[in-house]
Structure formats: C-alpha cells, structure tokens
Amino acid sequence: MASQGTKRSYEQMETDGERQNATEIRASVGKMIDGIGRFYIQMCTELKLSDYEGRLIQNSLTIERMVLSAFDERRNKYLEEHPSAGKDPKKTGGPIYKRVDRKWMRELVLYDKEEIRRIWRQANNGDDATAGLTHMMIWHSNLNDTTYQRTRALVRTGMDPRMCSLMQGSTLPRRSGAAGAAVKGVGTMVMELIRMIKRGINDRNFWRGENGRKTRSAYERMCNILKGKFQTAAQRAMMDQVRESRNPGNAEIEDLIFLARSALILRGSVAHKSCLPACVYGPAVASGYDFEKEGYSLVGIDPFKLLQNSQVYSLIRPNENPAHKSQLVWMACNSAAFEDLRVLSFIRGTKVSPRGKLSTRGVQIASNENMDAMESSTLELRSRYWAIRTRSGGNTNQQRASAGQISVQPAFSVQRNLPFDKPTIMAAFTGNTEGRTSDMRAEIIRMMEGAKPEEMSFQGRGVFELSDERAANPIVPSFDMSNEGSYFFGDNAEEYDN
C-alpha cells in the first residue's frame, strides 16, 4: 500500500510504541512475548500442572481467558453494579484439565481477579502490559475465525453469508486497541457500523446529549479505520460520505453494504499476525530463551520457528480426527482463516481442507461434555516452508469459486491468482447506482469489472525454506488448481455463540 510509510507498523501498534527502528520493534515485541511466557509459567505453578498438562491447549485457553477477564475493567465495573446470582464479580476462573488415573478430569478453578492481575503485572515488570493482553485477544479471535462461520451475524446486519472472507476479527472485544483495529476485516468494521446506525434509528437519543457526542466521535473513528483499509480513492470518498452524514440511517447502511461487497474484489488491507497460545510461549521462556534479547516478529519467520520446536497437546472428542484438529489450530496460529487453501497447503506441506470436510468441533470443551471418553493427542503445528504475512489485500483475480465463501483475504505475501467468483459478486451490483453516491458507485463498479483474471497478485513473492531466515531465496510455489480455494466452501461450520 502506498501510504505504508505514514502508518505505524503493526509491531508498533502491538507494543504501543512511538516510531521505533526494526531492532527496537523486535525487542519490544519480544518483551511482550516474554511477559506472556513468564505469566503462563507462574500460572502453571499456581495450578500445580504437570509439564504435559501445561502444554494442553484447553488449559492455555482457560488461563488466557482468566487474565483477560481480570483486566476487563468495563465488564468488571458492570458486574459490580449489576450483581447477578451466583456470579462473584471479583473472581474469575474456568475449567482446568488434569490427568488422573490414566483419565482426563475437569476441575473448575476460581481465583481472585486481583490475584491474577498481581501475577500478570509481576510477570511483566510491574506494568499492565496491555500489548500482551491484546495479543491474547487476537489469538482467540484468530481461533474463532478458523472455527466458526459468522453466517447468522452477517444475515442479521443485512449482509450476504458468502462475504465471510471479510469477517476477520469479528469476535475481537471493543477494547483491543490499535492492534485489534489493524486485524479487523472490512466486513467486521461494516458490521460494527451498521449495528451502531441501527441503534440510532431505533433509539432517538442515541446521537443526542453528552453521551451522543461520545457516540458520534466513536462512529467517526470507526469510519476512519474502515476508510484506511480501502485502497481505492472511490471507496475512500464513499467512506467520507458515510462519516460526514448528519443523521446516519438506511442510506448509510446501503452504502456500507455496497462497500463491503466491493471489497470482495477491490480488497481492503487487513493486517495478519501470528499470535500463538500462551502454552507455546511459556515452555520456550522456561527453556531459557530470551525473546527480548533475541527479538521477535509476528509477521516473519519467528512464529514458524517457534511452532517448529513446540509440543502442544489437545483434548480430542471420541469421533474427532486429531489431524483435522491440528489443521484448525495451525490455521489459527498463522492467522489464515480466509487465505486461499492452495497457498496454505503449499506452505504447510500437507493438504489443507475446507472447514466442512474437517471432523472436528471447536477447541474448547463445553462444561456439560462427558470427560470419560476424552483422549488427548499432539497437535501437528509444523510447516514445510515459511512466508511473510501481508497486510495488503493483493490485486484481484477471477477463479472458480464456491457456493460458500466467494473470495479470499490473503494472509501471506505469496504470488498467486486470487480466487473470487466474479459473476456471483457482480450480480449483486445491478441497477442500484442512484442517489448521492452514484458517481462513486459507478466508478467502483467500473474498477471491479476491469479486474483481470490473468493478473498475478504479489508478483514474484515466494515462500522460503525454514533454514532461509533472511528470506534470501524465494520459492514461487505451484498450486494444484483442481483443489478448492475457499475454506468455508459450501460450508456447515458451527455458528459462533458468545
């Protein structure tokens, strides 16, 4: 993207840094990872977990959730003011799984939030270390993106479920800051804005008074975040219109849905970061690795190297396929839920299948599930090659597409044709070009129609051997075009429920 120079890199967003050079960025990201790792080690000690239990991804998720809940100030305040039966607002906890007599047992633990905050700050040299908290939120978000298709949420806001490739980060909490905003897809931002506008339509006082002023500035800020994701002048001009509207209503909703559809071809720039579970960072720190000293990046080879040398386990339900569970977590670790499966298959070195073909449910185990038949197995999170994460949407291309997802959002900077089903997408653009945004709409449609099938995206960008740390010898991959490109292809993934 041309304006790259004016933006802070995501590592800076990730670490609240002012302008830093590459070495400083690597050190501050490393410091953040160190903090998460030290916190995780301490929690495993508190909970008396064995090494194996500490490497269980379900335990990692519970521990991450506990610290996120302990620092969720708004919710904590709300819980104190609106006490609900049987919930102690000062405590947080969740299921911890232990191996007892050759069987997995679930144990519900409860801790004072104050105590968890103390352990977290102690692991982070006394700081609140917001960057580390956001990092864990993005890992949870990436896992949700890989596990669930947001059909219901899309339909509720009037969008087409086939636009799911635009929904990265749709389950990120509001408090995820600049680093969170960077990884949100165009569809996620559109959905947040539509929800806001709908509230304004239904509630006369939404934009009024002292609160209304705050609401208005939040609305304009979200519009600017979305505008910054678009790469064409016409899309940005249309966002200006939406932002400046005196009284946002149905016309703005129409414009936003139009823009979301246009992003299936004229893709937005959305950041991709490899955020790993805390149970990967903990053992690495415990083994003596100093992330701050060595430096770390979320968008280069580092996460690949770390996963190459990590042992992570997962509980497996009786009829689940461990290899499929591994694929789910591998995609989440690489922030690749909406990437082209052919690119992923090449990088991973084994075939990556669409969601609907995987015999696996989510990673988390519900409290009512029976533990008797639970097994555990090693997650295979290694890769054959590594590639640089991208934040450009890439230019655009036609490809055989599917009944489910009709476009992709690249996660890796790797040369390819970008699949999208042009006739299906263009069919949504018939007729409606009147109104105050008509010239911009016409211009956007013209650009979409001009998108050429034979153009290559990320020209000359390749993948790298894991021994090639400096990215000196790019390998331009070859793809098996007979395979499906979309992950949520004609899909039956479970729906995400809060």
Results as ranks from 00 to 15, higher is better:
3 S>K: 00
10 Y>K: 14
30 G>A: 15
31 K>F: 09
36 I>H: 06
38 R>K: 12
38 R>V: 04
38 R>H: 12
46 E>F: 14
58 Q>Y: 13
62 T>R: 08
66 M>C: 13
66 M>T: 09
75 R>I: 01
78 Y>N: 05
82 H>Y: 13
83 P>F: 05
86 G>W: 02
95 P>C: 13
95 P>H: 12
97 Y>I: 08
101 D>Q: 09
104 W>E: 03
109 V>K: 12
113 K>E: 07
117 R>P: 00
120 W>F: 13
121 R>S: 15
126 G>L: 15
132 G>I: 15
137 M>D: 07
138 I>A: 11
143 L>P: 11
144 N>S: 04
152 R>K: 14
156 R>M: 04
161 P>M: 02
171 T>L: 09
173 P>S: 12
187 G>I: 13
192 E>I: 10
193 L>Y: 00
195 R>T: 11
201 I>K: 07
215 T>N: 12
216 R>H: 13
223 C>E: 10
226 L>E: 09
232 T>P: 09
247 N>C: 15
247 N>G: 13
250 N>L: 06
254 E>L: 05
255 D>G: 02
260 A>W: 10
264 L>W: 13
273 K>F: 03
275 C>D: 01
276 L>N: 12
278 A>H: 03
280 V>I: 15
282 G>H: 12
288 G>R: 15
288 G>E: 06
298 L>A: 02
302 D>T: 03
303 P>M: 13
306 L>P: 03
308 Q>D: 03
313 Y>W: 13
319 N>G: 08
324 H>Q: 15
326 S>C: 12
330 W>I: 11
334 N>F: 02
334 N>C: 15
351 K>D: 01
355 R>Q: 10
356 G>P: 07
359 S>Y: 04
369 E>I: 10
379 L>W: 02
381 L>F: 12
391 R>Q: 07
396 T>M: 02
398 Q>A: 09
403 A>T: 15
404 G>Y: 06
406 I>G: 01
406 I>W: 06
409 Q>K: 00
409 Q>N: 06
414 V>E: 01
423 P>F: 00
425 I>E: 01
430 T>Q: 01
433 T>Y: 13
436 R>G: 04
438 S>K: 01
451 A>T: 01
451 A>E: 07
452 K>R: 14
454 E>D: 07
455 E>T: 14
462 G>H: 12
468 D>L: 01
476 V>K: 00
478 S>V: 03
487 Y>L: 04
495 E>V: 15
497 D>I: 12
498 N>E: 04
